[in-house]
Design a binder for these strands. Structure first.
Lengths: 346, 346
DNA sequence: CATATAAAATTAAACGTTTATATTTTGAGT
DNA sequence: ACTCAAAATATAAACGTTTAATTTTATATG
């Protein structure tokens, strides 16, 4: 079987030197159009494909985009990481017609993610990094900034220097949800949040408080829960909060998994959605339309932010200023019920 | 800043040649223990890490494992691909302490997946390939076998030559489910399956028919549905089948997503689980415990097959015979209800 | 037309590694 | 102490690419 063609093969074929071939393939202005065409033609005929390890060795370019995913442990976290597939999928789609590939670096904890990032940068194992689960004050972000390494975050932070990010507009979501529930007469509104150290959790809390105080209401901190966004966590919280003297009449869940858990709690406790309380969620899978009953959800198709993530990464590698690579998406509110309930009950 | 250390650095440091250093690092018997230790010591002190592109250029080894994932389109397929994260996660875990990485190659269709596989092999872009969604007669499998390229499949096939695979024991699952339902008095048992061309679908059908005929029942083909395993598909099928003159009293769903759709259909149609019909599912996420109501499920934690996938891949690359790398996992039946219903109704 | 200059091509070296071949060292046997 | 084979190490080339330095070729200028 014929050896895989290299630039040498093309050089021999066209009678040019490998240097010229290389330049031609890289669209260098040093080579004149006529020879360029000749090279491209030959490359096509021979079925030439760039050998990335050659490039990598010479230039340090890896054509890899590292995606750091944090999954705590194999199974306890049944639903966790569900979104990563779609995320990677969207990124892959954005870089489809480039030589870049997404390489997933799976880690078990935040600290591990930092270690992996250090190794990737130190050993130049990727051309760019994408992380999620950003914290308000995220040491990984400052590190990557110091090292001047290209990165995009899925999620915001309060880093002093601007960086490329994509996120859902969490403040906006929460404002919409709270205002809707207030207008339906709810006064005890619980919010089930992700872990407190995540920046988006903080944003949600701020928006929650702001919306309440704008309506002249005060915030009862016992209605705010923080944890890993699993169905189990949602159910736990329902169990707990529904036993309060003045239980919530509405639950805002940070994702559909948690909402499912809350609904599951309803059923166990003999509660009924729309009578005893209501649940609304934010998410990007839109699976809540199949819940029993379906619930009102702030929905943002995950394909949007994820493709943007990929696009931003390419732009960044191409030298674009991070300040131009920041985007907040505003989800649609999909009403799937009146979201009222027997408020006089309490 | 100091350059990243290479074998040259170690050679200089130890006074040896790069050749010896290389051999020492690769545990060649040609180098005597004393010098080997010296090299290892120096490597550690310098913080040396293998530069893969160097190796790759010289030997062709890529240290990449290609995972081919098929996701038809961005959003229509809301829940689809949910399992890939866990799959990749498990594989990553299995290869954690090796230099190997998982690289995801996302494609839109079966045909594309074949194309990508060809490119990977032709251009030696990976050391091994993992695919899922295997068909009974899968051309990708025969191609990889012809090319003598290492691969493991998640899912079986009826390829004549043996190959490495990991799968759930689908025949067993279906047998268990059907027997259980029959024993509860069900006589009209529907089965919602994945697409017909997938080998596991065929296995499930065979087992279904066998279990029925063993009990002296005949199979009504109108109770068998084939399609993409989304909630939407489950709901559609419920809408259709529940209108039959003799509607099913039980639905066996190939995954939890579809089961959720069926339950959602129940709610829309005013049907009740356990009164009008029951649903049971197979899956690896175990999220069905949070359904309302929770349903009986054949559960296999996806971490098991996925870690095995990674392990098999390493073994294969290490030269193990594929015939020793075949494994079927048997899930646990988790009963979450009586799974009886008003059978006299029909 | 000769010459200066710009443009286009070539040469050669380098990136980090492995490995076939060559050379030196070691140590056992006399 | 000397020989000689075996063991250990060294040399050098190669993998495919890019790029600085250099040479050749084409173009413009007076």
């Amino acid at each position: 079987m014929a050896q895989r063609p290299t630039i040498k093969t093309i050089a021999k074929e066209t009678g040019l030197s490998t240097a010229t071939v290389s330049k031609a393939l890289n669209a260098s202005p040093q080579v004149r159009p006529r020879t360029r065409d000749k090279v491209l033609q030959a490359a096509k005929e021979l079925g030439y494909e760039l050998n990335i390890s050659g490039v990598q060795l010479r230039t340090g370019k890896t054509y890899q985009i590292a995606m750091i995913t944090v999954i705590a442990s194999p199974d306890d976290d049944e639903w966790a990481g569900v979104g990563y597939t779609q995320l990677i999928s969207g990124i892959s789609r954005a870089i489809e017609h480039t030589p870049y590939r997404v390489v997933q670096h799976q880690v078990a904890s935040f600290d591990d993610s930092f270690e992996v990032i250090k190794r990737i940068i130190q050993n130049k194992k990727a051309d760019g990094i994408i992380i999620s689960g950003t914290r308000a004050n995220d040491p990984r972000i400052s590190f990557m900034q110091e090292q001047d390494f290209p990165f995009v975050t899925y999620g915001t932070s309060d880093a002093s220097a601007p960086h490329a990010f994509v996120d859902t507009d969490n403040r906006r979501i929460v404002t919409i949800c709270v205002e809707r529930l207030l207008s339906k007469g709810h006064r005890r509104i619980a919010m089930i949040n992700a872990r407190e150290e995540l920046n988006y959790t903080q944003n949600r809390i701020e928006a929650y408080k702001a919306a309440l105080s704008k309506a002249g209401q005060t915030c009862d901190p016992s209605l705010l829960a923080y944890g890993r966004l699993t169905p189990a966590f949602g159910r736990e919280q329902l169990f707990e909060m529904s036993m309060f003297d003045e239980p919530p009449t509405a639950y805002i869940c940070a994702n559909e998994a948690t909402a499912m858990g809350v609904l599951s709690g309803f059923q166990v406790r003999g509660m009924e959605h729309g009578r005893d309380a209501v649940v609304i969620a934010t998410d990007d899978l839109n699976v809540s339309q199949y819940f029993s009953p379906p619930i009102t959800t702030c929905y943002l198709p995950i394909s949007k932010p994820s493709e943007t993530l990929g696009k931003f990464m390419l732009d960044l590698i191409g030298g674009e200023d991070p300040i131009n690579l920041q985007k907040l998406f505003v989800p649609d509110l999909i009403e799937r019920g009146a979201d009222t309930c027997n408020l006089e009950r309490q």
